[in-house]
């Protein structure tokens, strides 16, 4: 066996299990779900090809499809920037040489490791209309608070607030980015008369732009795929997740219900491929726009 053959053999020996796993557990289910998206398949009978009817129903007739898009886009547009700003702000604070820095880093990271269901149950009680903590506090100053959890106007903003509670992962990534900024650059800027804002604007921000870009891309993808938050929050209230009046029916939750509550696997597959296409398009756009402001230092 010559060197090239041996190299090829070793390559497949090491890469083979991973490639096989990917082919069996990712590629094959993806291709199968693409096929299912053109079928009526409700598990009880074999898939039946129906062409584009699933896509047509979703786009033209499904009363839940467009509301779920609207909910998801609103959440993404509001939650992602707030979450990024919050994570960056706290990371900047935790990057300062203060006493007990490790302790505070742990404290701010803690909400991220709490189970979503547990924190949802706590927030349901905080935002409860009758006797909830927030409305009691508002009542002390003469304000009659609304039915936060069950008002279509407030239910989604409440979920944005609940989700902002935990930004541990982007915060840690920002921290690592901040720690990689050379101190000399700050010293040079300081000597040149740059103030705190100018140092942040012209030194910190450009140097952590790859990290910021990564967090924005992941934040958008995460927000577009939100499921567990809405599910846990609805369940904690003992209500059908997604209500009231579809005000918290996120796209991911809608997809889950179609697939695993009502077993419209064909319809759910069509939804999954539409989401895939949207995420790909937004990510592509992000990368295109990112070229203008992300600095990789080369």
């Amino acid at each position: 066996m010559n060197a090239r053959r041996a190299q090829l053999l070793w390559f497949w020996l090491f890469a083979g299990p991973a490639v096989l796993g990917f082919a069996c557990f990712s590629l094959w289910p993806m291709l199968y779900s693409l096929w299912l998206s053109f079928c009526r398949y409700e598990v009880v009978a074999p898939p039946a090809f129906i062409g584009l009817r699933n896509y047509s129903y979703l786009l033209k007739s499904d009363p839940a499809f467009w509301p779920s898009i609207k909910v998801t886009l609103f959440f993404t547009a509001v939650q992602m920037p707030l979450s990024i700003l919050g994570a960056l702000g706290v990371a900047l604070l935790l990057n300062q040489p203060v006493r007990g820095r490790g302790f505070w880093r742990s404290v701010y990271f803690l909400p991220s490791i709490l189970p979503q269901a547990a924190s949802a149950a706590v927030f349901v009680y905080i935002f409860q209309a009758d006797g909830g903590l927030l409305n009691r506090v508002l009542g002390l100053v003469g304000i009659a608070g609304p039915a936060w959890n069950t008002s279509p106007t407030w239910a989604l903003p409440v979920l944005v607030i609940v989700s902002l509670w935990s930004f541990g992962y982007p915060m840690v990534i920002f921290l690592s980015g901040l720690q990689s900024v050379p101190r000399e650059l700050y010293e040079a800027a300081h000597i040149d008369g740059a103030g705190a804002w100018a140092r942040f604007r012209h030194v910190t921000l450009p140097l952590i732009s790859p990290v910021l870009f990564f967090n924005i891309v992941m934040g958008i993808i995460g927000a577009l795929k939100v499921f567990d938050l809405a599910y846990a929050y609805g369940a904690a209230q003992g209500l059908e997740p997604g209500g009231p009046a579809r005000a918290t029916l996120f796209y991911g939750l809608n997809l889950y219900q179609q697939a695993f509550t009502y077993f419209h696997m064909g319809l759910a597959s069509a939804m999954a491929w539409l989401l895939f296409a949207v995420i790909m398009a937004i990510t592509w756009l992000n990368f295109r726009l990112g070229r203008r402001w992300v600095h990789y230092g080369d």
């Binding site: 009758d130 039915a147 959890n149 069950t150 008002s151």
Partner: peptide, 9 residues
């Protein structure tokens, strides 16, 4: 009946 969402737990 209480308005929507205001029924006591």
């Amino acid at each position: 009946s209480a308005p929507a969402g205001f029924e006591p737990l």
